[in-house]
Each structure stands twice: as structure tokens, then as C-alpha cells.
């Protein structure tokens, strides 16, 4: 407000009003600036942000949940292709589904449908199991990394998931 008056008075040209230098316009600009200055730090420069952004920053555990869903789908696909593996793979698929459900609860989000897994038909049993073992090994490493970085209240769950994946590697031997 203080700034607007000297500027307006300082203008001597009769065209000042036409060019938008009127006191009213400058006052408006001052009000907008003042509003902007207050609003920006509170709302992240978006005056219409009400904190219900539908796309918040991804939680570090989102990839773990996605991995659990993918692994469940892979085991289910292998089971469909070779029902003789049911005794071995059903508990592992169920474990991944339980992990996905627990993580979804923690993240406060619905469990998305697992992406369809590539059809395992045609692959021999040995190569199917080797592929699953390799996937479990990689997944164990990613869970272990997340466990190391997790806050205390999440460490036990994430560590349990890492350990479960290690037991799947063992079971698939």
C-alpha cells in the first residue's frame, strides 16, 4: 500500500490513467500482491488447493505393494499353466496377496487389480521355477533395502515381507 501512492503521484503524464497507473489499479495490484504473498507459502502457489490432491507424492512402499501384486500374478499364472505346482505355489501366491493387502491397508488405498502376468504356458517346469526364484530373489533385495530405510513403525512389516521372499527362494529350490 505504501508503495502505490508515491508511484501514482510521481506520474506526470496525462496518459497515466490510460496506461493503467491509476491509484485504483495500483491499489488492486497491491492487494493481489499481498494476497499472493500470503497465499503462496500456505498452499504451494495454488490458491485453489484444498489439500485433497488426488495424486499425492507416491509413498516409498508403493513399489513394494506393486511388486507383491506382480509376484502374486506371476505365481497364479504359473499355477494355471501347471496345476501340478499347486502345493508349492499356492501358499506363495497367497503370501504375496496377503502382503499386498497389508500394504494397501497401511497406505490407505484400495488394492488395484494385479496386472495380468505373461502366460507361462510352454515353459518347462524347471525354467518356470527358475524364473520365479529369480524374481523372488530380486524382490527380497528390494524389500530389504526398503526395510533399512523405513521408519520404525513400518520396519517390522517390511522386514517380514523381505524374509518371506527369502523363504520363497528357498521353497522354490
Amino acid at each position: 500500500m505504501v508503495l502505490t501512492c508515491p508511484v501514482a503521484r510521481g506520474r506526470t503524464t496525462p496518459h497515466g490513467r490510460e496506461f493503467g497507473y491509476s491509484r485504483r489499479n495500483l491499489l488492486r495490484a497491491g492487494v493481489l500482491l499481498a494476497l499472493g504473498g500470503v497465499a503462496a507459502p500456505l498452499t504451494g502457489c495454488d490458491p485453489f488447493d484444498r489439500g485433497d490432491d488426488p495424486d499425492p507424492a507416491p509413498d516409498p512402499l508403493e513399489p513394494l505393494a506393486a511388486e507383491a501384486r506382480e509376484l502374486a500374478a506371476r505365481h497364479r499364472a504359473a499355477l494355471a499353466a501347471d496345476p501340478g505346482l499347486a502345493g508349492l505355489l499356492t501358499p506363495i501366491a497367497e503370501a504375496h496377496e496377503a502382503h499386498a493387502a497389508e500394504l494397501a491397508r497401511l497406505l490407505g488405498r484400495a488394492t488395484p487389480t494385479a496386472a495380468p502376468s505373461p502366460d507361462a504356458t510352454g515353459a518347462g517346469r524347471a525354467s518356470t521355477l527358475a524364473g520365479l526364484r529369480e524374481a523372488e530373489q530380486g524382490a527380497r533385495r528390494s524389500a530389504a533395502k526398503l526395510c533399512a530405510e523405513a521408519p520404525a513403525e513400518r520396519a517390522a512389516l517390511v522386514g517380514s515381507i523381505a524374509a518371506a521372499r527369502a523363504t520363497h527362494v528357498e521353497a522354490l529350490k
Binding site: I92, A95, I161, A164, H168
Partner: peptide, 8 residues
């Protein structure tokens, strides 16, 4: 089964 969902 030989595995459990949440070891420990």
C-alpha cells in the same frame, strides 16, 4: 505349507 506369509 513350508512357508508362512509373515515370518516372525
Amino acid at each position: 505349507p513350508i512357508t508362512v506369509a509373515f515370518p516372525g
